[in-house]
């Protein structure tokens, strides 16, 4: 809001607050009520009811069988594999995200916009194709297939393939949160630290990192949610070996296709909880970011 505008009494009312706005720029009550009604009905049908259904179906046969479905050995090994995959994929993409943001936000060079487009590329590729590319490289008929077989190294239909596919689909998350944030912050603080004699790493740890920590957290939790929940890409490279190469989403599919609905929804409910925790942290970060005025975080 500009300084000139804020001198007008009407405009000094915060945006979105209707209490004192003039009648001429406000819809009649029935319009407001029906728009809110339409929005809530739409969101209820498409968001809230499906979310509630996951938990209702999971607990249909009681809490004991819910618990049994989760500690069942195959489900348990799926949980462990999912945690392992995320714990490799997220740090890799975190380091990449910081490096990419440092190069793009702190320096000017040619081809920057092409680089930005390429970083976003995995988001516009169908998950199935994200899996397919690793089949073409590491599969029996793929580039390295024969060589890998000779040396008895398993990548496809094994854990490394799952990790690679997950790294691919979660590749842009941290970078695309950090780049606009660091661009908006400029270089002055880092330059001051360096001029005062701090080393590059010291400047990064003590000046840059505290400035980007909320954006970093934001990117990491979104990256983590996708890493744990990815289905299409992982499904293509996993081979669906029970107790070995099934992540939680794949375990959900197997149980569901065996008509073991309660168990499928029990595992699914853990993923739904993860989604809710992710959204809670995300809202918290946005709220913090608003406080310290880190605008670009919402533009996403």
């Amino acid at each position: 809001m500009t300084a000139a505008a804020s001198t007008l009494s009407i405009s000094s009312v915060p945006r979105g607050e209707l209490a004192y706005a003039p009648a001429a720029t406000v819809e009649p009550f029935w319009v407001r009520a029906s728009l809110i009604g339409i929005a809530l009905v739409f969101l209820t049908l498409f968001l809230f009811v499906p979310l509630a259904a996951v938990f209702a179906e999971a607990l249909k046969k009681g809490f004991d069988s819910y618990l049994a479905a989760i500690i069942e050995p195959d489900a348990w090994s799926a949980i462990k594999l999912t945690l392992l995959t995320a714990s490799i994929a997220v740090p890799l993409n975190l380091v990449f995200g910081v490096a990419a943001a440092w190069a793009i936000a702190k320096f000017e060079f040619r081809g920057k916009s092409l680089l930005l487009t390429l970083i976003d590329l995995p988001f516009s590729v169908s998950p199935v194709i994200s899996g397919l590319i690793y089949v073409l490289i590491f599969g029996a008929q793929g580039w390295f297939g024969p060589w890998l077989r000779e040396h008895d190294i398993k990548i496809l239909f094994a854990v490394p393939g799952i990790v690679l596919a997950t790294v691919f689909v979660t590749f842009p998350f941290v970078a695309r949160e950090l780049i606009p944030l660091m661009q908006s912050q400029g270089n002055e603080e880092e330059e001051a630290a360096l001029v005062l004699g701090a080393s590059g790493w010291r400047t990064f740890w003590h000046v840059t990192l505290p400035n980007i920590k909320w954006g970093l957290l934001y990117g990491v939790i979104l990256c983590n949610a996708r890493a744990m929940g990815e289905f299409g890409a992982v499904s293509v490279v996993s081979g669906h070996i029970r107790g070995e190469t099934n992540t939680m989403p794949l375990q959900v599919e197997i149980l569901y296709n065996e008509y073991n609905f309660a168990a499928a929804f029990a595992v699914a409910s853990l993923l739904a909880l993860l989604a809710l925790v992710t959204l809670a942290i995300k809202s918290f970060v946005e709220w913090r970011a608003q406080d310290i005025n880190l605008q670009p975080i919402r533009e996403h």
């Binding site: 607050e17 209707l18 968001l47 929940g229 289905f231 959204l279």
Partner: peptide, 30 residues
């Protein structure tokens, strides 16, 4: 969400991102 005030607006706003956070397989079976 931008122009009106109603009960539970903050929660509704946060839940709009659910399809980004909820694994697709879970959405599918639900």
């Amino acid at each position: 969400l931008v122009r009106y005030r109603f009960a539970g607006k903050k929660i509704v706003d946060a839940l709009v991102d659910l399809p980004f956070a909820l694994p697709t397989a879970v959405a599918g079976i639900a």
